[in-house]
Write a protein that binds this DNA or RNA. Structure first.
Lengths: 200, 200
DNA sequence: GTCTATATTGCGATAGAC
DNA sequence: GTCTATCGCAATATAGAC
């Protein structure tokens, strides 16, 4: 197996294990066994368990970079927010373990939190904040709204929906076929919530 | 020290440690040292590390029981939702570690998830669902809204706000003095988002 | 590059003295 | 009830053979 195959295999195998059990919940023995490799390969290819975890986390959070591209799309602010929600759903579908790393690092931070997670989330919030400011300037959103409270509310709606999946599995249909409907519902609530009223 | 003092001390000391580092991130030696006790006291009083964790988790999630009381208050549905948001903020203030156990169990579940966490959250969602249904029947909320999507959006706004605190510490004022304003902002967005329009 | 074997440290739990 | 001492095992990491 080539260098790169081994590294990639280890990361692919490690991703769901770290995501589901947390950094301290997985041992190098378990990782090596799952990847069908000798446990010394983790040190050989990455330098240790923590370095493997950092590599996985970096890969996961790199996908958040797409959010910045929304800023420069040819859409009005509401359209950009819809794109944010839509792309967030899509990202969680393509990347079923991202949210677990996200919340795990927020709740039980490792040294990677300050280096990787916090800056990545910060950049997303910055983009959302800029979109909101744009919408206020365009007279689309109510001026009296607090920008940060508002964009955190938007981000909370969609992220919490996925975070609660282990609890709501039997209560709501989490099939990807319903994603478009979900996006529509959340945008419906958010749009009416923040838009300037017709009679003002 | 009496039986009950020892048990209570251990739980008080264990709560922030388990919350910040996760179950696997804390050792019985660390717990005993922090509580200034011999490590064998954990087994003596609780039967082991896992039983101590379960006791802490039980205590934490018992506070969610208050939500059920909202259902029978003499308030209209919107007033009950405001009470839910308000009491959630208050609960996180009084209980700074609850949200960490909440998300930690959702992300990296222990055996306690099915026994304690999932039922407790399920009961909260049930109450919110009932309040929403009540509001639809009263003609206060739009019929076309999906009840589950809507209440998850509401819960997401407030819970995600606190979950992101480690990232937004420098961006938003997290002082309790601003809590009332935050509740007002979120209710403002939610109310306009779900209420039946004036002209219909 | 991949293996075995092992060094070292830490873990949770408990037996038994007091 | 509280202590010390220790058991048995698992952890990460690495030295060295091939």
């Amino acid at each position: 197996m080539s260098d790169n195959d081994c590294r990639a295999t280890l990361m692919t195998i490690a991703t769901p294990l770290f995501a589901q059990k947390g950094f301290h919940g997985v041992s190098v023995r378990e990782l090596a066994k799952a990847a069908d490799m000798n446990l010394s390969m983790i040190s050989y290819y990455f330098g240790g368990k923590e370095a493997l975890y950092t590599a996985v986390l970096n890969e996961q959070f790199a996908t958040l970079g797409q959010v910045a591209e929304i800023k420069s799309l040819a859409l009005d602010p509401l359209g950009k927010f819809e794109r944010y929600i839509h792309s967030t759903v899509e990202r969680y579908r393509k990347n079923p373990y991202l949210l677990r790393f996200y919340t795990s690092e927020l709740t039980n931070p490792t040294p990677s939190f300050e280096l990787i997670v916090k800056p990545a989330i910060g950049r997303v919030l910055l983009v959302l904040h800029q979109i909101f400011t744009e919408g206020v300037a365009a007279g689309q959103f109510r001026r009296e709204l607090d920008p940060m409270d508002t964009i955190l509310a938007l981000a909370g709606m969609i992220n919490f929906y996925f975070l609660l999946e282990p609890v709501t599995k039997e209560l709501v249909n989490h099939a990807p076929e319903r994603d478009e409907v979900l996006v529509k519902h959340l945008m419906d609530i958010f749009t009416r919530g923040v838009a300037v009223s017709i009679d003002s």
